[in-house]
């Protein structure tokens, strides 16, 4: 799906836990997530901390979308 979206010329960032799959499939901007059942959360944190964690990941995704890349790039931070 990432590729079909990008094929139309719209930049896309893939937030996912299993980065190697995303690389194999061909996503060009990748943000590693927390865990498979809760990619953008952590049930062990309290509500506010968890939302702050999610915000950090979404901001990283926006940063990835604002960054020109010339090859598949994993945005670790």
């Amino acid at each position: 799906m990432v590729k079909e979206i990008e094929r139309t010329g719209i930049p896309v960032v893939h937030i996912c836990t299993v980065v190697p799959i995303s690389l194999t499939v061909g996503a060009n901007r990748i943000v590693p997530a927390i865990a498979i059942p809760h990619p953008l959360g952590n049930p062990n944190l309290d509500g506010n901390e968890e939302k702050a964690l999610r915000r950090k990941l979404v901001e990283r995704a926006l940063k990835a979308l604002s960054t020109e890349v010339d090859e598949q790039t994993v945005f670790e931070n």
Binding site: K3, I10, P11, V13, C16, P39, L40, L65
Partner: peptide
């Protein structure tokens, strides 16, 4: 085929970027 279809809509509606999340 799903993505082809909705990407067309995204394009038509002037969406600038997409965040796709996977589990």
């Amino acid at each position: 085929s799903f993505a082809k279809e909705y990407s067309q809509k995204l394009k038509e509606d002037g969406v600038d970027a997409v965040i796709l999340t996977s589990t």
